[in-house]
Computed example of a mutant assay.
Amino acid sequence: MNGPKKLQQILAVLFIFTILLCSCRKAENTLSTKQEPSLPTIVIGSDNYPPFNYSGTDGKPTGIDVELATEAFHRMGYQAEFVTIDWENKKELLQDGSIDCAWGCFSMDGRMDEYKWAGPYMISQQVVAVSPDSNIYTLQDLAGKNIAVQATTKPEDIFLNQTDPDIPNINGLFSMQNRELIYPMLSKGYVDAVAAHETSILQYMSDYHVEYRILDKPLLTVGLGVAFSLDDTSGLNEELSDTLEEMQKDGTSEKIIGKYLAHPSTYLEVENYEVK
């Protein structure tokens, strides 16, 4: 009788020891995870601008710029945090340190002296779109017309200054703080045309199942970049430029852009592009 009892006692001890050992290992793994230092955060200011930055079905930021930034900063040893800002105030937010950089389909052309830049990481065309039945077919046909744009963008600058001989005198320019408001203004006939990045117009047409006609000749071809304050001495803009170039060469950028746009390689022809 003593034999079976002793065997039961030994098995019980082994069972308890096994549980304790597993618990210790689990605790060690948990402790090890907690002890891993978290990556420093880079705060990126942007606004809602599909397909570059918008809220996904889970409510989290997604889009071309979000994925590019997440990958690039991770390679650099940082984690990217996107915050929604009033795009008109981006320069002030960079200067006071509220954000580390501004990243949101941001055209570098004509702004080289206003920021420290990383990029260009993509090229994009600024275009004019009209209703399908519009009698506007060329840029010259915009003479005397009303046009809606987003405030502080390149199209606003083009139509306000009108230094390009291809740009005629228009009747009125409506600069909207919220980019998404320019499209209902066109659909309802409050303006005759809208001007924005071609990718943004195509995305809006797809999302809301509306049809616009994009004029054949673009307003401008621009390089897209990431803006840092002129007072920034971290050197992050130069490191980010190198990382984005690395991502283009290893195919990562094309893979990311291809999730959102057809013919992604056409947006990556930046090697010979000279920012103006």
Rank of each mutant, 00 (worst) to 15 (best):
V222C: 05
M122D: 04
G119T: 09
P40A: 13
G45S: 03
F159C: 09
D231C: 04
L21E: 03
V83F: 07
M205F: 09
K217Y: 12
I214N: 01
V222L: 02
L139N: 04
I123R: 10
P51W: 06
P264Q: 09
P184H: 08
T152L: 05
S234Y: 07
D250N: 15
D47E: 06
D65W: 04
I214W: 00
Y137W: 02
E114Q: 11
L230K: 14
I147K: 08
P218T: 12
L236M: 15
I158F: 11
R213M: 01
T233P: 01
N89Q: 15
A72Y: 05
I214R: 00
S23V: 14
Y54N: 03
H263T: 12
M185E: 08
E245N: 08
Q79A: 12
A102K: 05
V13P: 00
C24Y: 13
L244F: 13
I10H: 06
F52P: 01
Y121M: 00
T199D: 11
V128P: 01
L31R: 15
N161G: 07
L39C: 10
D96I: 15
H74M: 01
N89A: 12
T57S: 10
G56E: 03
I136T: 13
K60D: 00
A12N: 05
K255P: 02
Q162I: 04
E180T: 09
A72E: 01
V275A: 04
N135Q: 05
K5V: 12
V13I: 15
I85D: 02
F174G: 00
P218M: 12
I182M: 14
E198G: 07
D207F: 00
W103K: 10
T84M: 12
Q177E: 14
N272I: 06
F73T: 08
S187E: 15
Q150T: 09
N146A: 13
K60W: 00
N135Y: 06
D109V: 01
I19Q: 07
M1E: 12
L94G: 08
L39Y: 13
S23N: 07
T84Y: 14
V210P: 01
D109T: 02
A129P: 02
K276C: 03
S23Q: 11
V66R: 09
Q140M: 12
L20F: 11
A227E: 04
N2V: 15
T57V: 01
N53W: 02
T163Y: 02
H74S: 13
A72V: 07
L215G: 11
E239D: 02
I256S: 03
F52D: 06
L139F: 04
Y121R: 04
I147Y: 04
T62F: 00
V222W: 00
E156V: 13
L186S: 10
D250P: 08
S38K: 15
P184K: 08
V66H: 06
D232N: 10
A129L: 01
I42D: 07
Y115K: 05
S131V: 04
P168V: 12
L268Q: 06
N171G: 14
V13K: 00
P165G: 13
E245T: 01
G77D: 02
G144P: 00
G251Y: 03
N53D: 04
T266D: 04
F73M: 11
Y54L: 05
A193G: 06
D231G: 04
P218F: 10
A196V: 02
G225K: 02
Y78I: 03
M1W: 11
G63A: 02
